[in-house]
Design a binder for these strands. Structure first.
Lengths: 353, 353
DNA sequence: TTGATGGCCTGGATCGATACAGAAGACACG
DNA sequence: CGTGTCTTCTGTATCGATCCAGGCCATCAA
């Protein structure tokens, strides 16, 4: 004799009070006598009533207490990127402090668009999405408060992120100052489906290359390599050929668009019997935790991913609260570590330093 | 002249059809003529209607398409633990394939209990929670399908996880076989609030120690160290004293209850000028990515965290679908790498191997 | 005794959608 | 021409809560 799920009404009827009184017993203890409250809760537990239904409450209240995060590509890949994990960490910290929960919404998958449309959220944070990702359009149509992190830039939507081109340019200038003359850039394809849209990786590559070329480097002295994906093994595999060349035929400095790739390069250098930075200077981007711990510690661009996550979440919460917001400036800083050094003399004209 | 938010009704009235037809235009295109559908959608977009409200739909349908994950302590810490991130990765992969979203629910914080109670989810996955965490009670009371990962074990709730004691015992036997006689175990406090409850870390420590003692090791030859938290710097800091002793006065093998801590020990060994494994054998637990990449590569216990995440999610989805489930057996496997070696002869009686 | 105050509780309206049964019209068939 | 089937669309009931205006009763000052 399985009775059906109890509701506020069921409990109210049995306890001999109104539905509203039961609701108050849970949500506003000060609105009823404690005697009544105790009795109501006792009846509720006897009936197996587990408290007001969150979905129904949300419908009535018109808020969910949840912020959605839409992530690049299929959601699973998010967790293989320590940079994204750090951003999530920041978002979570801020939301958690405000008593909000975090809904992870996959983008780029089969029903990604529909998931964005059906997500029960008060706001959406778009993380590193291609401008033409259908999930972006779906998010905009939802008419909920939006924030973007990294990409894309949307009109009237606050964006959190560094100026990738400028930051990459600073890496280029730094390597030039160290006397390097031949360079490689290691990037990665940015998604299986569309490569047309310009991503932050493109900005990094271009910012780096343009600066070098403007400073007089021959375009042919800036080799661009593309790894299969943004992972350490891919980074390792993709530079094997480069590192197997004789010293005079290979670049003396390499810039990888992510630390993950840069770490793969360090692995490859070890494999090839090269010493970093003596034989090759390596610089990365993001300053993930592993960058400072690698051997040698990785020179990279730090841009406070955690802080960007926090900022994005704060912008979302402010918009939910109806406040007007303005995106904060995020500062990128070159972290000079031991994976970069002056270029070997032989490759510099003039010899004397 | 801001007209209020349009609803199905608004659109229906303007388009001259019934509310249900508008709903069908979005959710069941085969239920109406395409001419009507086009007209309805056109009116909707003109009115700025952004599609059916997900919360209202969920209430009516009685399902949210969302699975909640309740994490140890304050949610933010979850992202500092690569093991947990890997589990999340697995959960996400499975959910994403099934078109479900993932709601992260913080436990252990101020309103954690209330967040669990208010989460709009079809099922909850409890990850490594203390049995007496109020979030656990709240989850049980919710009467939604539950799955636990690691801890706690609850009656009638499928649990995914390894047998920590047995796995730790295998580490102990392995080190005994290598001829070690003096040991250290590095563990960590498991939460700021309650230390009374028995966690998986306790199981690992006890499984390790009990095996050694049963094999004839004197209890005084198994030192237990407790790090401030589960982080690499803490692991490093906490063994400084140990490693600064003379060879005859320090253990020759150390077992850390997590890889993170073990990596910290490797750092400390480097600081102290010791060579691993010549001067000290180090073993960890979890087999996180960084374990294979460390110098030297870390001997550890692999237990397919990704797979456990997937399994947990699958169990949740099956329960939502009304199927009966049984928890799978998870196999833990000792990964022998280069951070462990035979004990130095001087510390073994009898000399000959 | 009267009117004001405040604590406790009630009932109807509402949030925005979907399910389901069935009506209306078009068309084919015997 | 009646009947049956198919497609397309409608209307009512329902999901489970919360808001809001107001009712009842006891206490208290005048």
């Amino acid at each position: 004799m399985a009775r059906e799920r109890p509701t506020l009404d069921t409990v109210a009827a049995v306890a001999g009070v109104s539905r509203m009184t039961v609701s108050n017993a849970y949500n506003r203890p000060d609105q009823l006598s404690s005697a009544t409250r105790v009795r109501v809760l006792e009846v509720a537990s006897r009936l197996g009533y587990s408290g007001p239904d969150p979905t129904a409450a949300s419908l009535r209240l018109r808020r969910t207490g949840t912020v959605g995060v839409v992530l690049t590509e299929r959601l699973p890949y998010a967790f293989t990127d320590p940079g994204l994990v750090t951003i999530l960490h920041g978002i979570t910290t801020e939301l958690s402090d405000a008593g909000n929960a975090l809904l992870l919404v996959p983008a780029g998958g089969a029903g990604s668009e529909s998931l964005v449309r059906h997500a029960m959220v008060d706001a959406l944070i778009l993380c590193s999405l291609a401008a033409d990702d259908p999930a972006v359009a779906a998010a905009v149509e939802r008419q909920v408060p939006l924030v973007t992190v990294g990409k894309p830039r949307l009109p009237r939507v606050p964006a959190v992120g560094v100026d990738n081109a400028t930051a990459a340019a600073s890496v280029a200038r730094y390597l030039l100052d160290l006397g390097h003359q031949r360079f490689a850039v290691l990037t990665t394809v940015t998604g299986k489906r569309r490569t047309s849209s310009r991503t932050l990786f493109h900005e990094r590559v271009d910012g780096f290359r343009d600066t070098l070329v403007e400073a007089g480097t021959a375009p042919s002295d800036v080799e661009v390599l593309t790894a299969a994906d943004n992972s350490r093994p891919s980074g390792r595999k993709d530079v094997i050929e480069l590192l197997s060349r004789t010293r005079t035929r290979r670049p003396s400095a390499l810039f990888a668009v992510t630390d993950i790739l840069a770490l793969g390069v360090l692995d490859a250098a070890t494999d090839a019997g090269l010493t970093v930075p003596r034989d090759l200077s390596v610089a990365g981007f993001d300053d993930i935790d592993a960058a400072a711990a690698s051997r040698p510690p990785l020179t990279t661009v730090a841009h406070d991913l955690f802080g960007q996550g926090r900022a994005a979440a704060r912008l979302a919460l402010r918009q939910i609260a109806g406040e007007s917001v303005r995106a904060p400036r995020i500062v990128a800083e070159l972290m000079e570590r031991a994976s970069t050094a002056r270029a070997p003399r032989s490759s510099r004209p003039g010899g004397a330093g």
